[in-house]
Amino acid sequence: MNVLFCSINTLLLCYINTRKGLYDISGVEVGQHLYWQIGGFQVHAQVIITSWVVIAILLGSAIIAVRNPQTIPTDSQNFFEYVLEFIRDVSKTQIGEEYGPWVPFIGTLFLFIFVSNWSGALLPWKIIQLPHGELAAPTNDINTTVALALLTSVAYFYAGLNKKGLGYFGKYIQPTPILLPINILEDFTKPLSLSFRLFGNILADELVVVVLVSLVPSVVPIPVMLLGLFTSGIQALIFATLAAAYIGESMEGHH
């Protein structure tokens, strides 16, 4: 009896331990944050840290690649020129001929989101242990995506008001005043859909990879990881393209 109980006891203990161990190894800590206090406000430190890294990567590589531009471009310069051409192309197709001033905004959106997403998939953040929470792509946090989406909203309002003055608000009763509520609603759904699309995709991708890794540690997660890289790129492109489309939409004439 005693022995039996003990064995059950140890078995259960082992079970608990292995389960705990699994969680320790593979656990993505969803919604866990490392908090910093700044002036009485809380901050998700892991997001701030990773965003610094992303910004450092972007600025550093840009400085190194284009500090001394050649007429016949070197490899890295060629890559950066290609990226700029790509961004210009996206802005031009969405905004139209007056795309010039918006290239920095669209380009920074695309590059920041793209590098953030790929850093989440490629950089071994998990090596660095935090006392609480864990490092991941900055776009994994709703704060980041909402910040970017709100900036996009501000940008397209600014674009419209700058182009047409107060006449911009005339678009709310186009084509008929009956659509006024829907047009107003659109201003809320745009940032909402932008932010949640990005946040959901990146979080879900990371979760799927982690769950698969915890179930089958080798080979099987690789296609999903590649799919994750693909999705990350697509999401960055979608965010930038939609932002450009919103800006273009608010700038175009509707008379």
Binding site: V43, L58, A62, P104, F105, T108, A147
Partner: peptide, 29 residues
Amino acid sequence: AALFEFNLTLPIIMAEFLILMFALDKIYF
């Protein structure tokens, strides 16, 4: 789990993004 928790991170990221935008504009775009 605080998935949908908004705090000071949001404005900080906004500021970081704007700084990044100006910096990239100056050195890259």
